[in-house]
Design a protein around this nucleic acid. Structure first.
Lengths: 310, 310
DNA sequence: TATTATTCATGCAATAAAGGTATTTATGAT
DNA sequence: ATCATAAATACCTTTATTGCATGAATAATA
């Protein structure tokens, strides 16, 4: 394998076309330089200089190598800096998983805050259900995930991002859609339900079933879907009702109306989760951004609540 | 400057994540490998591996360096081969000068023959007058030139490519254009002439003036032009007559007719010229192609002449 | 819980590579 | 023909790299 040091020597000689002066530029004496060039020519198997005792000129092969060597040396020159930049988190790559529900709440703000603070980092986003995210986190295929609690894996660290109540999503032609006030849960007793499959988010599924049981009925499950958008679509098509996070109200889809519930619905918690052992600088920065973003949102919400009371 | 050998060591460790096995793959013992990696980390100024005594894993910086190092090593790996390819003339670059007249005779065939035999060579073509070509050859800005004799420079080697008679180019509405037979030179005595400037090709200019003088007149020069196409255009526009190489007949331009001359016109010689000191393999191959192309053409012409006699 | 095997790091001697000085050889210029 | 210049060679010194023996830490095992 060709040695970069020899290439540097070669470039000096090729540029000055004079072994003595090139040696001076390299802070060495002329004889070892001559030998290094000879050795390089042996290694490559091509004559790089046409030399008389008096004059030195490049062969075609030498001219080609000069171009290539300059390019490679410039590349090697910056390699250390580029690598340090990755270590400091100035550049890098971050792969994030998220559930479809956060599309309409925290995801956009969080991403734009992170991107603004760390423009050199390439973000890769993958919409995945909570269970898949847990597996992908474990295998290191995503650096962090936004998913539904609970997370029972001790290898993962978590940060709560969002707590939301559930609201009822109803087809607009449902009789219940006409009422202007909060709904009683028991009113939904007879309706078919559209729901997340248990495999995708056991916590949410169990919470909904438990909630209904407390309301005095067991929901009849008409349809399952693993994306919030799909669930809302199915509701709008009249296939059933659904209990969905309150932030979905911002989605405003034709044919669907949302109604708050009179009973305190279970709190849906969205967590940021990551492998505790993952020491990536980009990840640490992302977690920090998320943490301060949560603080800011919480503070904002408290302030809004205070002003509403006055 | 980072050493490629160390990068190779690093790639081995990064791929196997095991110093002992990596050392085995590199046919060395483990301790020096550990030290080389430490030294690489010091040189770069970044931690590349997160090591316990028991486990080794890549940091983000290490993962980045692994990609970059693989790329650089692959590049270095092929460098010798690519350079040898240039030496053998398998790849390379050849810059050629040519006068506009050869556009219609030998240039197309010569180029296609060379390209077929040496597809890896990039050809650069520059249409230049003979005098400029001589200067550019001297300065090494073109590797070879197709130009008009004579070439008096002892530093240049030459190969005759083509010998041609001159023919008269006349505007089609000229009275002489109606005659179906060869013209007598003296018939052109009164006509205005379109001619190459003497500075661009002294040999051709002087030959034409001398030829006319032998015919008993001094040509009146109405217009000068340095491209054959331009000369023929000016003739077609009726600005004068011209003496041009016979191969220009193939150009068949509207408004121009060509007539042979009864007198033996001077022979116009197109030469291939190159710096004798130029040892470029591509050039040598080009000269060889030209030489055999000339032989073939001459043989063909002789054969044609022989068959015409029979 | 103590032991053992594994594996990365360190100390030191041996070896290989690179560099320096003195000298030779060839060549273009005077 | 002689001289000055510049690349190559000879020979020795210095530096860098490697291998072997060993130390230290950790995870698995008895």
């Amino acid at each position: 394998m060709i040695d970069l040091r020899r290439l540097r020597y070669f470039v000096a000689v090729a540029e000055l076309l004079h072994f003595g002066r090139a040696a001076a530029r390299l802070h060495m004496s002329q004889p070892p330089l001559s030998r290094q060039i000879q050795q390089l020519e042996r290694e490559i198997g091509a004559v790089l200089f046409r030399r008389s005792k008096r004059r030195v000129e490049l062969t075609d092969a030498g001219a080609y190598l000069l171009d290539e060597a300059r390019r490679m040396l410039a590349d090697a020159e910056t390699l250390a800096v580029r690598t340090r930049r990755v270590e400091s988190g100035e550049t890098g790559r971050l792969t994030l998983g998220f559930i479809s529900a956060v599309d309409y709440s925290i995801l956009p703000g969080l991403l734009s805050a992170y991107r603004a603070a760390h423009p050199g980092v390439t973000l890769e986003l993958r919409e995945l259900t909570s269970d898949i995210q847990l597996r992908e986190l474990h295998e290191g295929r995503i650096d962090a995930g936004m998913l539904l609690s609970p997370v029972d894996d001790t290898a993962l660290a978590t940060l709560p991002l969002l707590r939301e109540r559930l609201v009822a999503a109803l087809p607009e032609d449902d009789a219940l859609a006409r009422s202007r006030t909060a709904l009683s849960l028991s009113a939904l007793a007879g309706r078919p339900f559209v729901i997340f499959p248990r495999s995708a988010a056991a916590g949410l599924y169990d919470a909904i079933i438990e909630f209904c049981r407390n309301g005095g009925f067991a929901p009849r499950i008409a349809q399952e879907a693993i994306q919030m958008q799909t669930i809302v679509s199915l509701v709008s098509a009249g296939l059933g009702v659904a209990l969905v996070p309150a932030s979905l109200r911002d989605m405003r889809r034709r044919g669907v109306v949302y109604r708050s519930l009179r009973e305190d619905s279970p709190l849906l918690t969205v967590l940021l989760a990551w492998r505790a052992a993952n020491r990536s600088a980009c990840l640490a920065q992302f977690v920090a951004t998320a943490r301060s973003s949560v603080r800011r949102t919480a503070a904002g919400r408290r302030a809004a609540a205070a002003s509403a009371m006055s």
